[in-house]
Amino acid sequence: MPYWDNARFACIVLVVLGHAIQRLTYDSDIAYALYLLVYAFHMPAFAIISGYFSKSDPPSRRQMARIITDILVPYIVFELLWWVTKSVVEGDVEPNLTQPSWTLWFLLALGIFRLVLPYLALLRWPLAWTVVISVGAGYLPNVDSTFSLSRTLGFLPFFALGWWLRERDVVDRLRLLERKAWWARVAAVAVFALAAWAAWGGLAGWHEMDMRNWLFYDQDYAALIGEAPWWAGGVRLALMAVAVVLCAAFFVLVPRGRFAFTPLGTYTMYVYLLHSFVLYPLRESGVLRGLDPTWLWLPVMCALSVAIAVLLASRPVRWLFRPLIEPRSRWLFADPGVLPRAGASDPTGSRRPPSTARHRP
């Protein structure tokens, strides 16, 4: 269905955009407001999509093999690449697979999401339990970035929400993907306008409470505010509610038809894993600091983000980097028959059409 590929591509563009403008936020309030708006919902939306295409049945041997081939092996490969990169640029850096580098946390989160989903599905009120887990994890200082556990637990409710929507057939029963009423699109635009106004109008407060780090879901409350008062979990709960509303508005605005960029939505993992290497020189060299005027450079960075996403999802780039992102892992398995025979899938949920799928023996 083109809709979901469009949504995936829009999400990955937002991921690139958020990372591309990060350095601009130190010198520009407008960039910081846009950064907060993007981070308020783009990873929750990605988690919802991933959950929507996940199954809660006990995994088959082939599905278990996919976690290894599509998530664990690329994670190790790119962690090693980041170790080499940072060693060359920053000096002596010890490799540490327990601390995901930059964007790689989401790979581990996807693997953990899929491992725990069959157990969550056994519970009554699974969504409520994931909210309790997410909010409660913030009170525990030992739940940190090791194996991306803090972010995994933080974003778990959004993944579970996506699964719940599919499990309860909510999208089809309410015909949410059919032609949308004009008022729904107007309401969605109004939601984003209100969120943008809040991001811009409350900048002083957002700076004071270090809102960007709240949106990362990767630190406990004491690290964010110096202590962990009883009401700290309410802040995360409020941010989760805001994220759900913004995600709903986002999904309303995603077009349903097929466009030139639609096929690129099935290759989001190429963009996700590679774009950080493209942006790393720009971020570390300092060329993105002090760019003025903002009204010129911020749109330039937005356009560059789209261009990077399109380029990294293109056929030549996929051909070149497929051995790293989709390594042939037959040698790992005692029974190579557990490997899928065709139709490779993106870990975020998309399944490639047979005409473009790479055959795996």
Rank of each mutant, 00 (worst) to 15 (best):
Y3V: 09
N6T: 02
A7S: 02
F9L: 06
V16L: 10
H19A: 02
A20T: 15
A33L: 02
F41T: 01
S50N: 02
P59A: 11
R62K: 15
M64H: 12
D70A: 14
V84F: 10
T85H: 12
K86D: 08
N96M: 10
L97I: 01
F106L: 05
L108W: 04
A109P: 05
L110N: 01
R114I: 02
V116C: 01
P118C: 05
L123R: 03
S145I: 12
F147P: 09
G154F: 00
R173P: 07
E178V: 11
A184I: 15
V186S: 13
A193T: 12
W197E: 15
A204F: 15
H207C: 05
F216E: 12
Y217P: 07
Y221R: 00
L224S: 03
V235D: 07
A243T: 10
F250M: 09
F251M: 01
T262K: 14
H275D: 13
Y280N: 12
W297M: 11
A303M: 14
A307D: 12
P316N: 13
R318V: 10
W319C: 11
E326D: 14
S329V: 15
F333W: 10
A334L: 13
P340R: 05
R341P: 04
A342E: 11
G349F: 04
S350L: 03
R351Q: 12
P354E: 02
T356S: 13
R358P: 08
